[in-house]
């Protein structure tokens, strides 16, 4: 049913730490691996070994350069997957009821056997979280590894989404945002967890932790400013060249 639940018992989601992510794409690979073999249709590739390969992924890592007014530019690696929004526009636009948000834990899922592959949900998502699989012709999206997190056949340590389990930097955290005492709630509160495109009114569940301010480049030696410069003006041949070129019309500028 494409009517959104008024509230969900739990709000399962991810905290993604932009300060810690090293941009290794391990989460992309583990996501593709797990979700190709498990929930729903496999994530297909087209012409994977040609120069123009293309495929379905539920998680992608962008990299951005942030240039502050003062100081050095900073590179921020930016993993992006479904944010399991509380006001998920992808769910309400679905004409068939294939897209739905679970009342018990807030996970947004696609019932692939009811999906007509119209693509309207992907149009409605501002984050590019949904991709139509070119082989199965149904919409694919992050399931928050719903087939891992409740899976009692797995050791307890593995009952988290594949991307979280694999992240070597510890940049991804999984938990329940409805519980104010959960690790993700505390982490998000302490580090200023933010929403992407809040103006879209989607109320995302997943939170992004902003990068911490970087150290400023300091003088290497506190006495350095007191040392006389080795040379002010070029001497000898270079000095003559400098004076001669400066004397020419149009120089020095």
């Amino acid at each position: 049913m494409t009517e959104l639940p008024l509230s969900t018992e739990r709000r399962l989601g991810l905290v993604i730490d932009l300060d810690t992510c090293v941009g290794c794409h391990a989460c992309v690979v583990s996501c593709k691996g797990w979700n190709t073999e498990n929930y729903g249709a496999p994530l297909s590739d087209q012409s994977a070994y040609s120069g123009a390969g293309s495929g379905t992924f539920l998680n992608r890592v962008h990299s951005y350069e942030v240039q502050p007014d003062n100081g050095a530019a900073q590179l921020v690696h930016f993993p992006k997957s479904c944010l399991h929004c509380q006001d998920a526009p992808c769910v309400t636009v679905c004409p068939t009821g294939a897209s739905y948000k679970r009342a018990e834990d807030g996970i947004v899922l696609v019932n692939e056997s009811a999906c007509i592959g119209c693509g309207l949900c992907a149009w409605a998502c501002p984050y590019g979280a949904r991709e139509m699989d070119a082989a199965a012709k149904v919409m694919k999206k992050c399931t928050l590894c719903v087939d891992r997190i409740y899976n009692e056949n797995l050791p307890e340590v593995d009952r988290v989404p594949a991307c979280v389990r694999t992240c070597p930097a510890g940049a991804r955290h999984f938990g329940d945002f409805a519980d104010p005492d959960s690790a993700v709630s505390i982490l998000s509160a302490e580090r200023g967890g933010m929403d992407l495109m809040p103006e879209m009114g989607t109320r995302p569940t997943n939170k992004y932790l902003p990068p911490r301010p970087r150290d400023q480049l300091q003088e290497t030696d506190i006495l350095a400013p007191y040392l006389a410069p080795v040379t002010d003006e070029p001497k000898g041949f270079l000095g003559w060249l400098d004076r001669t070129l400066s004397a020419l019309p149009k120089g020095p500028l």
Partner: peptide
């Protein structure tokens, strides 16, 4: 800037695409 939430820190530029 609003898409990444990084706008408050400086000018944001797409540096490397994910694919």
């Amino acid at each position: 800037a609003t898409a990444t939430g990084l706008g408050g820190r400086g000018a944001v530029r797409a540096f490397e695409p994910p694919h």
